Amino acid sequence: MTADASNKTSTPIHEPRRPRYVTRGPVPAMRFRPGPATVAVASMLCLLLGLLYLAIQIRTVFSDQLKQEYASLVLDAAARAESAREQLGVWQHMPERSATHAQDYQRAHAEFTQRLASLAALVNASPAPAPHFAPATLTPAANLADTDAMLADVSTYWRAQRDADSADVRVRITHVARTLIALAALLFCMLLTALGMYAKRNRQLAGQSQEFEHASLHDSLTGLPNRRKLLAALREAAASARAATPARSIAVLYVDLDGFKQVNDSLGHHAGDEFLIAVSICFRESMREAELVARIGGDEFAVLVSAYATHAQLADIARRLIACVVHTDERMGLGLVRASIGIACFPEPVDDYRRLVAAADDAMYQVKRSGKNGYAFVTPATRPAGS
């Protein structure tokens, strides 16, 4: 059966929303805000500088330890020389009583001379600047008092040098420990930054994936779901209707805009696009949230009703859709566009939900053949073969 639009009940129509233009003040100057990549690069530079400083400190520690060990060698040699000098002094102050006394004295003097020569070799070969032994103190005729003074100076100098090197090693080890703590903290911050960058990238990819998915399931002009989204929603609605107790019925309303081609031909595609956007907004606002409005072609739309009680509810939806088209046409001052709607229901009379859209399309063409600007239900007599 076909119902003419002249019998439709009056339905409140919402005006499509218009964008608001807000006057803005001067644009504030851009401020530099370091992002994760900038922080990561700065952290890497700090890490490299810290490692370089750490390497220098460790090298200096080893150098100071070598100096400390060298000073200990010199002090050991000085202690042996002083011991030999004390032994020589003992023989020197003993009265001569036999020929062996002179021989023992000569041996003690020779040993002292040898110890002194070894000490002088160590002191003069020092890699660090240090007071050298005077050559006159190493001759057999050297004054023992001058030699004693030289030994005392050597011991004092190298003992102070060893203590200074030891203190320097302790200070540098403290610096190394602090640097290691700072580098560990920096590495921890870099790890957190890397995790933050990874999480941010994942969020960006997830957002892009959602955008791509949304674009693949929605019409780019009107923002309505497209045919792919409609078929997926239809499949879910059919499964839900079958599983419900008692079983529910679902329906598809196929809407074709009569006379829309004249809008494009006479006023241009820009006017046609404006009409499609406006009528899509009206369709959306006149339907409930549970009813899916989709654009499935150039001037073809479909509404999926996931639950209804009577055909009268579907007829009311059809009249609201027709009223949206009429209102949009009148608001734009066209006087050209109306709507033909076919309605197919599942599970009766269409027992296969996959044929709902095609059955509603066939019913819509029956309306067009009967004079357009109305709606018609699919009946068992008019149901397409195979549905």
Rank of each mutant, 00 (worst) to 15 (best):
T245R: 13
L276D: 00
V252Q: 02
L276R: 01
V252D: 00
S266T: 15
D256Y: 04
H270G: 09
R248F: 01
D258S: 10
F260E: 02
A247V: 15
R248L: 13
G259K: 04
I250M: 08
V252T: 05
A244P: 05
A244C: 11
R248E: 13
S266L: 14
G259Y: 05
F275M: 07
G272E: 03
A243F: 01
P246R: 12
T245V: 14
D273H: 02
H270C: 05
D256A: 07
A271Q: 12
E274N: 12
R248A: 14
V252P: 04
I277T: 13
F260D: 04
S249M: 10
A244K: 08
N264Y: 09
E274R: 13
R242L: 14
D273W: 00
D256V: 04
S266Y: 05
R242Y: 09
P246D: 12
H269A: 06
D273F: 00
G259D: 06
H269L: 06
D256H: 07
V252A: 01
A251Y: 08
D273G: 02
I250R: 10
N264V: 10
A271K: 04
S249P: 00
G259V: 09
N264R: 08
D258N: 15
A271W: 02
G259A: 07
N264M: 08
H270I: 13
A241E: 13
D258V: 12
D265M: 01
P246N: 12
H269T: 09
P246V: 10
G259T: 05
L267K: 12
D258A: 11
G259H: 05
D273Y: 01
Q262G: 01
A243T: 09
I277C: 13
E274W: 00
L257D: 03
L257E: 04
A243I: 01
N264E: 08
V255H: 02
Y254M: 12
A244D: 14
S266K: 11
F275G: 03
Q262F: 10
Y254V: 01
D258Y: 10
D258G: 10
D258H: 10
I250D: 04
V252S: 02
I277Y: 03
L257S: 09
H269G: 06
Y254N: 08
A243K: 05
L253G: 06
F260H: 07
G268W: 07
A251C: 10
A247P: 12
A243H: 07
L276V: 00
I277N: 03
A251G: 13
V255W: 04
L276A: 05
R248I: 02
S249Y: 01
A244G: 05
H269V: 08
I277F: 05
H270P: 00
L267E: 11
N264T: 09
R248Y: 03
A241D: 13
A244E: 13
N264W: 10
D258P: 11
L257W: 03
A244V: 06
G268R: 03
P246C: 11
R242W: 06
A271I: 00
P246L: 11
S249E: 13
V263T: 07
A251W: 06
I250S: 04
L267H: 15
A243D: 15
D256K: 06
A251D: 05
A243P: 02
E274M: 08
